[in-house]
Design a protein around this nucleic acid. Structure first.
Lengths: 230, 230
DNA sequence: CGTGCAGTTGAGCAAATTCAACGCTTGTGG
DNA sequence: CCACAAGCGTTGAATTTGCTCAACTGCACG
């Protein structure tokens, strides 16, 4: 049973209207990720919807700055966050023609956007692009599998796992700057905000972490954290 | 906290040694899945290991008959089953060079095997194969995402979700022949065998299903099941 | 200086786990 | 052919974990 987190703003009406832009021949960039970056950039305000579940998956996205969450809401309001994407991450890759998850900006964000058809067209001609498309999808698969391994653990292990995961994705060795709320974390971990909060203070009491502010976490004892990670 | 299900046989020593076989030119089959089927077939006894975690991912597999589970065991013995593969399903596709999960035969099974390098070589020359490789990976991604949505639900919803999922993959409309044990189901759903068992009898008591035998389930009231699915 | 949102903390409760016992089926050796 | 052990599944009772409901704090913003 999860948190009925349906009551939250979603500055919709920010529909995507990216000007058509032909991807020219020229020298093929080695990284598809870089190709996306050459696309149009858009700004999204905190909590603005980037795309919705079941919408046609016409674009690929790359976070330039800010943070993005993808999520799905069940009939009764329970929300599951599928992933957080940080600067440099590519998202929006999905199997079929339509998105399975919705995507929102966690905080004000700049996102590079590229037409899927452009990439696909490129992939059809260029084998290397096709391979990278596949590699990106595989990486996503791997990430989701890791997420599953998180979800079967105890509350403490989930929170610790989340902190270690975020830490690995952040520049600083010991400091984590969380762009997301406790509700976001809870919905990512399949817990309630209360349990997340309690677990964090408990970790602080045991000197494993320090909560500089509620959004800034200092990892004080990585050894202990790794031990608590299950 | 999950079941310490580490104590289970694993008829190893069934190392894969597939004879090299050049994939000839000829007309390109439209389905990669069919291509795999043209490969060498191997038999695996119940509980035999097909590949292990961290082994090089040199092959692609397709279930001809039987059933396969992929899984990962945590340090303390908790096991999470990532997926069940039934006849017709392709598995073994992974991002990197090494498997992230282990794979075992749930029951005696026949598996078609093909060298990954052969497929990749084919993909390098043939765009269509590359695309299908990507489609298969995307489909797997989708499946894992659905699995996550299962794992955040209540015990009853998970069990019902599992039954509906299996039902959709089986020939019969109303009857499910389960190849796997309660332990397997529990480890797939992130529950204990006791909870799975109790939930099934509870579903039977409410006339939603009927347990012909412990491995044969009859779906008596799909409407009720869909309602209980969350 | 209030109002509102995010986060924390506490008390009681519900769901699922743990521990334990038992029944049924299957296979095996005497 | 029977007896018995082993594996699988079910059921019961006690316990634990995380959730629900509720109150309260701190902080940002008007």
């Amino acid at each position: 049973m999860l948190s009925p987190a349906a009551i939250r703003v979603s500055n919709a009406g920010n529909a995507i209207k990216v000007p058509e832009r032909q991807t020219e021949a020229g020298p093929v960039p080695q990284a598809l990720s870089d190709t996306i970056e050459t696309g149009v950039q858009m700004s999204f305000a905190r909590n603005a919807e980037i795309y919705g579940e079941n919408e046609p998956a016409d674009y690929l996205y790359k976070v330039i700055s800010g943070a993005v969450r993808t999520y799905k809401v069940l009939a009764d309001g329970r929300r599951q966050i599928g992933a957080f994407y940080l600067p440099g991450d590519v998202f929006g890759l999905e199997s079929g023609e339509h998105h399975v998850f919705s995507a929102e900006a966690v905080i004000d964000s700049k996102i590079a956007v590229i037409r899927r058809s452009a990439v696909m067209g490129l992939a059809a001609r260029d084998n290397d692009v096709a391979r990278q498309l596949w590699v990106l999808t595989s990486r996503e698969l791997r990430r989701v599998q890791d997420h599953i391994m998180l979800l079967i653990k105890t509350a403490q292990e989930r929170v610790v796992g989340f902190l270690l995961e975020m830490s690995a994705r952040m520049p600083s060795e010991t400091q984590i700057e969380l762009p997301m709320s406790r509700q976001d974390i809870a919905d990512y971990l399949g817990l309630t905000i209360e349990t997340v909060s309690r677990t964090l203070t408990q970790l602080e009491d045991s000197a494993a972490i320090e909560l500089a502010t509620s959004r800034r976490v200092l990892l004080r004892d990585r050894i202990a954290l790794r031990r608590l990670n299950g």
